[in-house]
Design a protein around this nucleic acid. Structure first.
Lengths: 216, 216
DNA sequence: GACACTATCACACAATTGTGTGATACTGAT
DNA sequence: ATCAGTATCACACAATTGTGTGATAGTGTC
């Protein structure tokens, strides 16, 4: 009987060891390799065939989402099962859009995990039960134009966001950028609309999510 | 030869299974039980003796820090080793202050983990090597009286922070919590001082850094 | 050259936030 | 039983933020 070849990717060594130990117990599964980031995954796939890729959503550098995108592009036959602590309903859709086959919570039981790998290999959609509900919810929600797309934000606007994130007042920002407070207010106003937020707090939160404040 | 009795606590089932599998391979260690939150840990300790407690820092409800505090108070002989993904230098000090014996990153190797448990049992301080440096850093950085130390923030205050982070106005927060706007304003005022920030933006940023908004 | 976008500014006004200075009541720890 | 901390509220006022509705000028594009 052919064993299902599994590749593990997680930035936590212990997680890798743990998963390996769990999967090793099942005779029809075989861990053929491990990786601790997205690049290593792609490197591995270039060399060796893999049936199922178990992927941590949160990883330094290329995260699970981006990795999936690349993997499915170059190796469409590989089934990707995302492993995560996250239970946000919103992200599931982008995951499946990007080509993932499954999405499991890290606090799933090991039986569920093993069954999930087998199901994914058979081409079945795999979803932690807690999440199924949430997904249906977010599907049945009114088709609001909410989209994961990050709008175009200009350099000047980013300067403004950064200063706001540093607790500057509008007056201080104006002084720093050598413009009037009116100008700063206008930038903020435009940003609120673009980013679909109500105030500076929401703006800074989204800016952080979108990685706008990363490079100082 | 006596085996070292280990109790595992983590809210992720897979993590528990993984750790158990790793530890089971060492003949001098024995996993005598598992728990998925702080309360379960305390319940278990009341019934059965344990040598080393492997504790996840991030858990719903009572977190690792608080759990350690309670454990060391009632069961001072139990050695506590904290497991975490976090590598903030700041939190280490509060951990040791609270009575933890060790502090390991989840991406440590399994050999390191096993050795860590044994060392902790022998009363040795255990610290992931990456962290040792950071700790020394934060120690030598004396001049600043309060560096990175997370102040005590009450449950009520956290409720307020969470709502602010969700772009609620003071009025809306007051309505949600069934208190007056004055009360909300007072909570905010106190938080600004505690957290050493100037406004809500700074507060939400720090709250995010400190992981105050993690669990819904 | 028309069009879209960016960056700049003005003026007025409403809404909200933040501060200063109190107070009362409950709780848990010393 | 006292004391520190928490949670609650009041009132007043200053400061800041956010909105509505304009305008001008430079840039790059089709």
């Amino acid at each position: 009987m052919e064993m299902i070849k599994v590749l593990l990717a997680d930035d936590h060594q212990i997680m890798l060891d743990g998963l390996k130990a769990i999967i090793a117990k099942d005779r029809s599964l075989k861990v053929v390799g491990t990786a601790c980031n997205g690049l290593e995954v792609l490197e591995y796939l270039k060399k060796e065939p893999v049936d199922v890729l178990l992927l941590d959503l949160q990883m330094p550098g290329m995260d699970g989402l981006e990795t999936t995108l690349h993997v499915k592009k170059s190796f469409p036959n590989v089934k990707v099962v995302m492993l995560t602590t996250n239970d946000e309903g919103s992200i599931i859709m982008s995951l499946f859009k990007v080509g993932a086959t499954g999405y499991l919570l890290k606090n799933a039981s090991k039986e569920y995990l093993i069954q999930g790998i087998k199901d994914a290999h058979a081409g079945k959609r795999v979803l932690s039960s807690h999440l199924t509900e949430k997904m249906i919810e977010s599907l049945t929600e009114e088709p609001k134009i909410k989209e994961g797309t990050i709008p175009k934000i200009t350099k000047r606007e980013i300067e403004v966001i950064k200063l706001i994130a540093q607790e500057y007042t509008t007056q201080e920002i104006a002084d720093t950028l050598f413009v009037s407070t009116n100008t700063v207010a206008t930038h903020k106003r435009n940003l609120f609309v673009k980013m679909e937020v109500k105030n500076s707090v929401g703006m800074v939160k989204k800016a952080l999510e979108w990685g706008l404040l990363d490079q100082r």
